[in-house]
Design a binder for these strands. Structure first.
Lengths: 226, 226, 226, 226
DNA sequence: AATGAATGAGATTTCATTCAT
DNA sequence: AATGAATGAAATCTCATTCAT
């Protein structure tokens, strides 16, 4: 991984800074092009030549920014996971203290990130086998970390007596999966549901399974599907 | 799709029948080898040479039974979907009349099929882009049909007043996804859960979300996770 | 060349004779099928499997009658050349003594053989490179022999003073070529000419170049094109 | 057909021009190599590996310049037909106004082009079946156009009363065929005739068939064979 | 920093030929 | 005599990667 866009170096020399900015912009341009074309065709079907054409640069340039095809693919996937890492905690904090509100905010944030990177999400499922073991391990590790905010709010809810005493890790993964499903099975859901409907229905269904019976009245608004 | 294993022709001439049986056996042998090696390595990464080596036949022979790599992959995937089509309805019928029992039996049967073809299930997610449009459409169509038994038992349960009035199609797809997750996220779940735990936990969670509150006592056995 | 059809052995034992007849029939069947399908698709494009299918026999059987693909192709071509060897001299003898009549009869016979084996004639041009050196040499040799009747009648005509003193070998080859052209450029000529027109026009043109000026009146019938 | 050598674009940017020139040179190099090796062995028998080896480049490079084997073959053949299109009209114009002189000049020019591309001419006969329908149609179309200068001078000659009133299209095709024969049957003619002899003999023979009897004296020089 | 021509290993696919039945 | 399943060498074509400019 040699992409300047993915490490956090911050040179102080203004020349270097300018160069760094240009590099970051290039890197983003390449990443976007790669995501666009891979998502369109499936990454194995996409040649470096095609990515270069989509980004309107030469093949050689890609190798300046990414060590090779595997690294490029890895960077595309990591890009999504980073979006989770920044978006979800922010959404949870923004919503206040009620544990069920926080849970819903977290789930909704997951779904929004997925919706932003719908095709790249599919890539994660489809292409991980074409990475080396190190890359796969890194993605799995980050995916697990990605669920932590959910696990956290679930624990809070259980401790606060708002949620039933479920296995927070399994439930968190279930919710992540349902969010992924918006991308994975989009061809199916889009026939009947818009994004908002999907999120609201899934929230209602999940909360029916999770909220303590005696707390139901309090969250009636979230429990009703329509 | 020229595989004799996938059509149900049954010639009456004993010679032809013997030949048909030999062909079906070959077909199965090749399919198994393909599934084994594709699941191990990811189908794009797997050459026809590798499949041939795994099956201990020559490359050329694969082309006698399957028109090419795409057809072979398609056959591997269809093989799983056919297992659903036979196993799930049988399990539902075997369990009796109670709608919640039937729902649980259906879900459990899905999970068992997935567990039998864990790697081939992953293939479905990973490789569908390498099929042609017709193949993809066929798989999607069969996948949708595959959910129908679940949709059916959900409707029965709702009509009988045992389940809350949820959207049966969305819930069915959610349950299918949770079953798929046993394959897709096996690397994660296997750290903490065996197959039985996974099924029981998911059943408990799902039923908490689905069963009519006033029917809870009746299904306490299924609602408890451990 | 193991084809029984192409050597002249004639067994005296009636059993052997029956077998020989059956073999000859098989041989002819295969040859016809090969010619048909090769002519349709171009011999290189035609697999032994395709020939077998066309002849409605198994691939293995072809190898019983012809040593391999090269021999089969060679046999198809030789078959045409044999037709020349029998048809042309017969036509020349049948027409009488006039040297110009004999020339015309020979040319017309060539054209008729070509018309009978139009596609196989094209094969001779197209596929000779796929034969081994021995096969090519044999075909060239036979092709040269094939022109001999024409050379012969040209010589007779010159000696008799009916034809101008041209180079008989070159003229013979020219005439053979014009006959071949009926097959080679059939796509062109068929737009404007039927077989009879083609032959008559070419006869007229050739005789204008060949007949002694003072003999013209005598052959006016042949010299007029329409 | 992506060969830069075959379209006439002329970029004004000097960098692009230089690149274009390099590409055209490469294209020509590959075309020459392909012609050389195909002519030597027969195009079906020739692998892309062999062409690459002959041109001393890698296989992959051929695919940058020609879309595949068919296009390469097509380009080799078109190359010859283009030589006709430029050489023959020029030769006709260079010789002056006499219709018979023009006819002879045209025929001689045909023969010279054929002699320059002797093996590629054979290719046209041998390999057209391995092209797709569009390619075959294009070649036939160009071949017909190629005869037009001959048709034209024949018409002029007939109109001027120098030639007998023959069918100019058929005669033109005959002459083209006789020119082709120098390539097709070179193995035969080279035993007795050099290029000059061949052309002179054929001219003499053809003119005997074509020139108006009362104009013979005027063209005695061309009518004598030696 | 950027280009894109060039490479060549490797993938899929075909098919002449063999051989057990 | 006849079959056709099986083989495997060889062909076409792709594309990740390199490197001279």
């Amino acid at each position: 991984m040699s992409s300047a866009a993915l490490d956090g170096t911050m040179p102080s020399d203004p020349d270097l800074a300018a160069r760094g900015a240009r590099q970051q912009q290039r890197s983003r341009q390449l990443l976007d092009a790669a995501a666009r074309v891979m998502e369109r065709e499936g990454s194995q079907a996409v040649s470096m030549q095609a990515v270069a054409a989509e980004a309107e640069v030469s093949v050689g340039l890609i190798y300046r920014y990414f060590g090779g095809k595997h690294e490029l693919l890895l960077a595309v996937i990591l890009n999504v996971l980073e979006d989770f890492a920044t978006t979800v905690p922010a959404a949870v904090e923004a919503v206040g203290d009620d544990p069920v509100d926080r849970l819903v905010a977290a789930f909704r944030a997951y779904c929004e990130v997925i919706d932003r990177h719908r095709h790249a999400t599919v890539l994660t499922y489809r292409e991980s086998k074409s990475l080396d073991e190190a890359g796969r391990a890194r993605i799995k590790q980050l995916e697990v970390e990605t669920t932590q905010p959910l696990v956290q709010v679930l624990r809070e809810g259980i401790d606060a007596g708002a949620l039933r005493p479920v296995d927070p890790e399994m439930v968190a993964y279930n919710l992540l999966l349902v969010a992924h499903a918006w991308a994975l099975k989009h061809w199916y859901f889009e026939r009947t549901l818009g994004f908002e409907d999907y999120v609201r229905n899934q929230v209602s269904l999940a909360l029916h399974g999770l909220v303590e019976p005696r707390q139901r009245r309090r969250y009636a608004r979230l429990l009703s599907a329509s």
